[in-house]
Design a protein around this nucleic acid. Structure first.
Lengths: 142, 142
DNA sequence: GTTGACCTTAGAGTTACCTCTAAGCTTATA
DNA sequence: TATAAGCTTAGAGGTAACTCTAAGGTCAAC
């Protein structure tokens, strides 16, 4: 049985974060010492590592809570439930990527059209674009 | 002079958001009516539109505060200051994109390796990957 | 003159995920 | 035995950008 800081070192989370995850039902210590210290079994460690891995991949705490409840009783759940969570996450990621791509495009174009020199910003093309409501007004394709 | 809801309608922000931006120094009403209502001049409207445009592009409120202070006194600032802000934002966006790409890759591979059928999740390959610390353990390239 | 829409303020609540603090007990080391 | 490291709890603080509420004043229309 590991104490909280040992678990923390083992899986690479702070003790703070482990208690935080516990409060949200993601990690639990199956025992307590006489003095009240959390004690983690091998199964607890595996569960914590599962959480860490899922978090690294990018699943939200809520996603992970769902995945854990499936993991806890695999035979009561279908494989589809797992792929649904994964697919939703993938869609979310793709949506965010599209947003970022749009931002990237605009920012690049702003930089392309601007000298960026040490001269005064009196005629800075970036400020002008922002003043004129966006790139469309300065000949951007959109 | 426009009242707050007129400004809101004009630029596409809620009155709540306008007051919030005001509290953070981004938007201001150059006058008040006798009864204390905010009154926005044409210059105020332009400034608010600038904020909205910059926000749409993805600049943070802090970025926008800097851009506004440059805009307010262009001749005391260099064009480079503006491009620096823009370039930093672009780097931030690129960094986030890279993170999301990594997530996308992992999620796609998880889905590829999994049936996702209605059968029980007893041998769900996604859960197995999460249990085993990530894709590396299942033959992923990394 | 009374609805009802709109305005004011300060301040709390939201989302997601931590991160830290205080006050006090326990355990290990020297 | 003393001291330092580590554990406990409840709860506050932080970030970013809103979003909403309460309690009350104002304004235009019927």
């Amino acid at each position: 049985m590991l104490k909280i800081s040992e678990l923390a070192g083992r899986i690479g989370l702070s003790t703070h974060t482990i208690r935080f995850y516990e409060k949200h039902g993601l990690i639990e210590a199956s025992e307590r010492s006489e003095s009240g210290y959390r004690l983690y079994s091998a199964a607890d460690v595996n569960r914590a590592a599962f959480v860490k891995t899922a978090r690294n991949i990018g699943f939200s705490l809520e996603d992970i809570a769902q995945l854990l409840s499936i993991r806890l009783d695999r035979s009561s759940h279908s494989c589809q439930e797992v792929t649904d969570i994964t697919r939703n996450k993938l869609h979310e990621v793709s949506r965010k990527m599209a947003e970022l791509k749009a931002m990237q495009k605009v920012l690049s174009r702003l930089l392309d059209n601007c000298d960026g020199g040490l001269e005064k910003a009196t005629h800075c093309s970036i400020l002008e674009v922002l003043d004129n409501g966006g790139l469309a007004a300065t000949g951007g394709v959109n």
